[in-house]
């Protein structure tokens, strides 16, 4: 709470970014305390990691200090306080946290908890809820991420001027020998860990979103230390854009397959020789699609932003 106030108060956008990092660390701590392992996992990877990275890159583009003239301030204050008031008003009607008589514990949750084991056969109920019972929602989220990637591409595409970038992008951390060696040691285990998270989502916390983010984070680390142009040689941007679309395609085609064999869209039961087996396969493939899309969209966004940064630096100097 106090972190949020400090974020709002400071003019130094940079300090604000770092305090948001701390804020998401803290909230993940709360999630851990409340036993929501998967949520904490996502918050750790997405909130604390990637969003801080992207905000930093944006700051590099826009400059560090907030502009001081803000004419809309009063209207914004009114709008925000009305919204917050409404939210708190709605909050009053919510059942007390942990109240066993709350509606969520009456209908949906017991059904998931009791039938998940026999219908889906996954030890981790969160994964089965996310990918099977709520398959539509997760599909929607994946498409949203994909759309975000397309938006960034449309706004800041670097394809036009790739020649300039490859000349301008310098390997900025050349003198740091220790950093280079340590990150060389670290990147392969990170990639391996991402794969572990990807395929272990059935049994423990994890899944496509988190794994995609970790995978992207490893490559971003490489790009930051060894320079953008080297990374672009390893990871071809065209391939990444193709992969981003491929992930969504994988997810959707699972749905189409079940539709063609006479079941509902995204009903995985038809994929295996019995229903539970089919659910397993369905979730595995769908998570793979999500992971591919998330990782490649993150990389697309990062590459676009940071190639902008390098170009800006070049024109300034």
């Amino acid at each position: 709470m106090s972190v949020a106030i400090a974020v709002a108060r400071t003019r130094d956008l940079f300090a604000a970014t770092m305090l948001t990092g701390i804020y998401s660390l803290l909230s993940a701590g709360f999630f851990v305390v409340m036993d929501a392992v998967d949520v904490a996992f996502t918050e750790a990877a997405v909130g604390a990691g990637i969003s801080t990275l992207l905000m930093l890159t944006t700051l590099k583009l826009t400059g560090q200090y907030e502009s001081s003239s803000r004419p809309l301030q009063r209207i914004a204050l009114v709008v925000i306080s009305v919204t917050a008031g409404l939210l708190f008003y709605g909050f009053l009607d919510m059942p007390i946290f942990g109240d066993p008589a709350a509606p969520i514990h009456q209908h949906v949750a017991p059904r998931y908890i009791q039938h998940s084991a026999e219908e889906v056969g996954m030890p981790n109920i969160v994964t089965s809820v996310l990918a099977s019972y709520r398959g539509y929602d997760t599909f929607g989220e994946t498409v949203v991420i994909f759309t975000a990637g397309i938006g960034v591409l449309a706004l800041l595409s670097y394809v036009r001027s790739r020649e300039d970038v490859s000349q301008a992008a310098l390997a900025p951390m050349q003198p740091h020998i220790i950093l280079r060696i340590v990150s060389k040691i670290l990147i392969p285990p990170i990639l391996l860990f991402a794969l572990y998270v990807q395929f272990h989502g059935d049994y423990g916390p994890g899944g496509g979103f988190q794994a995609g983010v970790i995978f992207a984070a490893a490559i971003i680390l490489y790009a930051m230390i060894f320079g953008l142009d080297v990374t672009l040689k390893v990871v071809n941007p065209a391939v990444i854009q193709f992969l981003a679309a491929l992930g969504v395609l994988i997810y959707a085609s699972v749905g189409i397959v079940s539709l063609l064999s006479g079941h509902a869209f995204l009903d995985y039961s038809v994929l295996g020789h019995d229903a539970v087996h089919g659910q397993h396969w369905g979730i595995l493939i769908v998570e793979l699609g999500v992971g591919i899309t998330v990782a490649s969209v993150m990389l697309v966004i990062f590459f676009n932003f940071s190639s902008r940064v390098d170009k800006n630096q070049d024109s300034h100097s």
């Binding site: 993940a28 392992v37 750790a44 990691g49 423990g204 970790i214 984070a217």
Partner: peptide
């Protein structure tokens, strides 16, 4: 797992 992610 989460602790490991945080370290990373």
């Amino acid at each position: 797992d989460i602790a490991l992610i945080y370290a990373l």
